[in-house]
C-alpha cells in the first residue's frame, strides 16, 4: 500500500457517511481519480480548507490494490481559489470548469497540458473577474487537447468551406453546418465570431485578456463550444444552465 505524493486540483466533493468525503481530484501524476478523506467534514479535520472545490493542493495518497477509491493521507494548499468563489458568478464559472473537467477527462490518464490549462483558467478568473474569455479559452483547449475540436471553417456534413457565411448548430451538435445542411439547427456562429479563434489560438490567456476588452462575439463562440463539450460528454452540464443566465 504505497504512499504517493502528487499535486492535484480538487474538482468536487461528495458526502460519505457521517463525516467523511469522497473527493474527486485531477492529479498531476496520476490523472483524474476519486479518493476518500476520512473525517473531512469535522471542524478539527486535518485537511482544513484544502479540500474545498478547485483548491490547488499537494496531496499524499494511499493506493490500494483492487480498490477504485484511494485514501487521502494528508493535503496542503499550494494555491487557494476559495475567496474568489464568494462571488456567485465566479462560483458558477469556476464550478463549470470543475464539472466539465470531471466529466470530459478520462479516469487515471495523466494529462499535464489539461492540468496547466485548468490552473491558467482559474488564475485568470481570479485575477480579472471576467468569465467569458477564460471559459471560451477553457472549452477551446479542452476540446483541442482531447482531439475533438470541430473544424470551425467548413461544414461538418458536406465539407464545404463556410467562408463569410454563418455556421449553424443545434442541441447535441459536434460540428458546424452550412446553410444548406442545417435543417433544424437553430443557432448560428457568424464568420466574425469564428475569426476570434485566430485572435487567441497563438496567445496565452493572459496576453489575450491584456490585449483589450472582450469582443461581443466571444459569448457566441463559447456557447457553441459548450454544446460540443456536452455532446462529447453525452450529458447536460448542470452548471451550464446557471452560466447562461449569469455570465
Amino acid at each position: 500500500m504505497p504512499l504517493r505524493e502528487t499535486e492535484a486540483l480538487v474538482l468536487r466533493t461528495y458526502r460519505l457517511g457521517e463525516a467523511d468525503k469522497i473527493v474527486s481530484l485531477f492529479t498531476r501524476r496520476m490523472g483524474r481519480l476519486r479518493a476518500v478523506a476520512s473525517g473531512a467534514s469535522r471542524p478539527k479535520s486535518r485537511y482544513g480548507s484544502a479540500l474545498e472545490p478547485m483548491s490547488y493542493i499537494r496531496l499524499w495518497i494511499f493506493e490500494r490494490e483492487n480498490r477504485d477509491l484511494l485514501r487521502i493521507n494528508s493535503a496542503e494548499i499550494i494555491e487557494s481559489f476559495f475567496d474568489m468563489q464568494k462571488d456567485y458568478r465566479q462560483q458558477v464559472a469556476t464550478q463549470y470548469v470543475a464539472e466539465a473537467a470531471e466529466l470530459f477527462l478520462p479516469e487515471r490518464e495523466v494529462n499535464e497540458r489539461a492540468f496547466r490549462l485548468i490552473l491558467v483558467v482559474l488564475r485568470a478568473l481570479k485575477r480579472t473577474g471576467e468569465a467569458t474569455r477564460p471559459l471560451l479559452y477553457f472549452n477551446y483547449w479542452l476540446l483541442r487537447l482531447g482531439g475533438v475540436l470541430p473544424d470551425l471553417e467548413s461544414c461538418g456534413n458536406c465539407g464545404r468551406a463556410l467562408g463569410d457565411e454563418a455556421g449553424y448548430y443545434g442541441e447535441g451538435s459536434e460540428q458546424l453546418l452550412c446553410a444548406n445542411c442545417r435543417r433544424a439547427a437553430p443557432y448560428q456562429v457568424r464568420a466574425t465570431t469564428r475569426g476570434l479563434e485566430r485572435d487567441f489560438r497563438g496567445l496565452s490567456l493572459d496576453a489575450w485578456i491584456s490585449a483589450g476588452p472582450a469582443a461581443p462575439e466571444c459569448k457566441e463562440l463559447r456557447r457553441f463550444l459548450e454544446e460540443v463539450v456536452e455532446s462529447h460528454i453525452g450529458k447536460k452540464l448542470v452548471t451550464r444552465s446557471l452560466l447562461a443566465g449569469d455570465t
Binding site: R12, Q91, L243
Partner: peptide, 10 residues
C-alpha cells in the same frame, strides 16, 4: 446553499 455543481441557484 448556492451550489452550481448540484444545480442549486438562488
Amino acid at each position: 446553499a448556492l451550489s452550481p455543481l448540484q444545480g442549486i441557484g438562488p
